[in-house]
Simulated assay, not measured.
Amino acid sequence: MIYGRSLFHIVASLIILHLSGATKKGTEKQATSETQKSVQCGTWTKHADGGIFTSPNYPSKYPPDRECIYIIEAAPRQCIELYFDEKYSIEPSWECKFDHIEVRDGPFGFSPIIGRFCGQQNPPVIKSSGRFLWIKFFADGELESMGFSARYNFTPDPDFKDLGVLKPLPVCEFETGGPEGIVESVQITKEGKASASEAVDCKWYIRAPPRSKIYLRFLDYEMQNSNECKRNFVAVYDGSSAVEDLKAKFCSTVANDVMLRTGLGVIRMWADEGSRNSRFQMLFTSFQEHVVTECPLLRDDGSVEPETQPHPL
Rank of each mutant, 00 (worst) to 15 (best):
D245F: 06
I15H: 00
C202H: 04
R261Q: 07
A74W: 11
V186T: 15
R211P: 03
V258G: 09
L246H: 00
C68V: 06
S129G: 15
D85C: 11
R5Q: 14
R5M: 12
G106D: 08
G164K: 04
E307S: 15
L19T: 07
K161L: 07
F287M: 00
I101S: 00
G141S: 11
G119N: 13
H18N: 12
K193W: 00
Y3H: 12
G147C: 10
P310G: 00
H290G: 06
D201F: 09
T262P: 07
V236W: 01
E305Y: 06
A208G: 12
R211K: 08
V186W: 01
C295V: 01
R268H: 05
E289K: 11
V125W: 00
E73C: 07
Q78K: 12
R261M: 03
L264G: 08
S129Y: 09
S13Y: 10
A194F: 11
A139T: 02
T285K: 10
P123V: 01
I90A: 09
E228R: 14
R151F: 05
I90D: 08
D162H: 08
D245H: 11
G265C: 02
C295E: 13
D257M: 06
V258T: 07
A139E: 04
T45K: 14
V39S: 12
L143P: 05
I113F: 01
G115N: 07
D140W: 01
E142I: 11
H290K: 15
P306R: 03
